[in-house]
Write a protein that binds this DNA or RNA. Structure first.
Length: 375
DNA sequence: CGTCCACAGGAATGACGGGCGG
DNA sequence: CCGCCCGTCATTCCTGTGGACG
């Protein structure tokens, strides 16, 4: 991790100046941070908070912060549990009512001094899945009792998130807003060059490698994390082949490899019914170029299930699977109306066929169902 | 211009595995 | 051990709907 965050100076200043009122002893505004993935939202927040904590201790003030990634803690309960554990409580992963956890949390925090910053990263996945109840509670956690107080920093990739929140939360959480613009290709190049200076020998990168990495990443909303990952994987590929230097071709291979690994990992960990749905879509694809409808997928799925000794689920459940995989980009489902002949979704595979086959083959239970020949 | 298809997707409900305090 | 509540997964029942057909 670098000591500095290039091209994010303005954002650091902005966030710092909002939070700095804590140094004067008052509770800083809650902050909402917007921006695409890999635009440095998380890094800047952590950086600023760490410095603020240090600065605070110089002035005899106690600042603490919890970082919670709401993609993994995506229920009210888990968010509360995570925060509570941070302040020294031990909370079982299930068993308590969330009201109880919240009560314990407010009690514990009342006994502490200072200010607790709660960073809720990827807050959109929490709100989408579990609503905004926790947010409401946390926002109101302040007035209750003396002792320490909380300030909330919400981070989201979804720019429209705040509209979907309850008005009371909106006004309180969105007291301040910061938007992180994506990095452009030039800035990405600069970031990569700084990092490459540390990570690679001077001659280890062929000309054009860094430019290609940043160009590929710039296409994906200026994702700096992706750019760095590309460079690293490309380096690993070159190393594996004991090449003298990383080539542009290595970068392109890294690009494909990253894509593939991400997808197979996701598919591997899916429940078997989801895999069966995926396979059904794949088989449906073989007959028609347009891709099967939900109904057709369900038919195939129903036919397949008994062959592996599985009870089939309902079509309602299956359509949830299709939607989930659509969100993940494994499938692409398009809502079409065929007028008199109904309204359905046309489902297609969103990943290279070979990748899909390999991922499905991993599961011994459905391997026998996968046909030899390709479309 | 209304009908009606083939679903989408929301809401309520229930089974299940689990932890809690008492 | 009990009664309670949790999250997760799944079912059942339901209302909503874009647009070709008649």
């Amino acid at each position: 991790m670098p000591e500095e965050l290039p091209h994010r100076h303005n954002e650091q200043i902005r966030l710092a100046s909002i939070l700095a009122s804590a140094l004067k002893g008052s509770r800083p505004s809650n902050v909402f941070i917007y921006g695409h993935v890999g635009t440095g939202k998380t890094a800047v927040s952590r950086f600023v908070l760490k410095r603020l904590r240090n600065e605070g201790s110089l002035h005899g003030l106690v600042f603490d912060f919890v970082y919670i990634n709401c993609r993994y803690s995506d229920t009210n309960y888990r968010v509360l549990a995570d925060i509570s554990e941070h302040v020294g409580l031990s909370i079982p992963f299930t068993g308590l009512s969330s009201a109880e956890v919240f009560r314990r949390f407010t009690k514990a925090i009342g006994k502490r001094d200072g200010l607790l910053f709660i960073v809720l990263d990827e807050i959109d996945s929490l709100v989408k899945k579990s609503g905004d109840e926790v947010l409401y509670r946390l926002v109101r956690a302040n007035g209750e009792g003396p002792g320490s107080r909380v300030a909330i920093i919400g981070i989201t990739n979804d720019l429209r998130l705040i509209e979907s929140l309850d008005a009371r939360i909106r006004s309180s959480l969105g007291e301040e807003e910061i938007v992180f613009p994506p990095y452009n290709a030039e800035q990405l190049t600069d970031i990569l060059e700084r990092r490459a200076k540390v990570a690679f020998n001077e001659t280890a990168l062929q000309p054009g490698v860094i430019t290609l990495c940043s160009a590929l990443a710039a296409k994906e909303h200026g994702d700096a994390r992706r750019a760095l990952e590309l460079l690293r994987i490309a380096g690993e590929i070159a190393e594996r082949e004991s090449a003298a230097a990383v080539s542009e071709d290595n970068v392109r291979r890294a690009y494909r490899e990253i894509e593939r690994d991400k997808v197979t990992e996701v598919i591997k960990t899916m429940p078997i019914h989801a895999k069966m749905v995926l396979l059904s879509v794949y088989l449906g694809l073989r007959d028609q170029m347009e891709g099967p409808t939900t109904g057709e997928v369900y038919e195939t799925y129903n036919r397949l299930c008994p062959q592996v000794g599985l009870d089939s689920l309902t079509q309602r459940r299956l359509s949830d699977f299709i939607n989930e995989m659509d969100m993940l980009g494994i499938l692409s489902a398009r809502l079409v109306s065929k007028g008199r002949y109904g309204r359905t979704k046309i489902v297609k595979i969103g990943i290279p066929e070979r990748v899909l086959r390999e991922a499905l083959q991993e599961d011994k239970r459905l391997a026998p169902l996968i046909p030899e020949n390709i479309i």
